[in-house]
């Protein structure tokens, strides 16, 4: 009976954690993958890990940071697996650049997705966390278990690499 009560309390805390954090975690993964289903899989994988490790959660950090850390590790593992099995082609983007696609915003968004996907995993994660999720470098460092400075260095390299890749694709951001 007592055991059941404990389990029920755990389940309630877990459900609350899921509901409070799911939007951010889903949005993080949705920037990394091309479909809702993939983002959903990664979100579920993250929260299953959260559940399995609830007993290890130390209350010296916020639940938010702790869950983010699990999500980021899940995301980094996914990115490494994906890079190992596929190379994203540039054909479509190159063609659009040559023919002068009139819908320049769509074209740039597509190019942006491809360029992001080609970044090294850590750089991709840092730039997503900083630019899309609005996290400070200090928090990114905590979440990714790296120093604040290392987070900044990854961000600097990410932007440099993105610019180079855009140039290689014939996309000039200087003119925007």
């Amino acid at each position: 009976m007592q055991k059941e009560t404990v389990r029920q309390t755990d389940a309630e805390s877990f459900n609350r954690l899921v509901l409070e954090n799911q939007e951010k975690i889903y949005a993080l993964f949705r920037r990394m993958v091309s479909s809702h289903d993939e983002a959903d899989d990664l979100t579920q994988e993250t929260f299953i890990k959260v559940y399995k490790n609830l007993s290890k959660f130390r209350h010296d950090s916020s639940a938010y940071t702790w869950i983010y850390r699990i999500a980021v590790n899940t995301g980094l593992n996914f990115l490494r697996r994906r890079k190992a099995r596929q190379t994203i082609g540039f054909e479509k983007v190159e063609l659009a650049a040559e023919t002068g696609n009139p819908d320049i915003a769509d074209f740039k968004n597509e190019a942006l997705k491809k360029v992001l996907a080609q970044l090294p995993s850590k750089q991709q994660m840092v730039i997503i966390l900083r630019t899309y999720q609005g996290l400070a470098f200090r928090d990114i460092g905590r979440i990714m278990d790296i120093t604040e400075n290392a987070a900044k260095v990854n961000y600097i390299h990410a932007l440099k690499n993105m610019r180079k890749k855009f140039e290689a694709m014939g996309v000039s951001y200087e003119t925007v």
Binding site: V18, L19, Q22, A27, L112, Y173, E174
Partner: peptide, 27 residues
């Protein structure tokens, strides 16, 4: 200006929100 334009393009992308009933379905 090149880097600022890249960041600007990223920030202009619409915010991502899960489908309306996603939270409950996920739980």
């Amino acid at each position: 200006s090149a880097l600022a334009a890249i960041i600007d393009t990223m920030q202009q992308e619409p915010e991502i929100e899960p489908p309306a009933s996603y939270g409950a379905e996920l739980v």
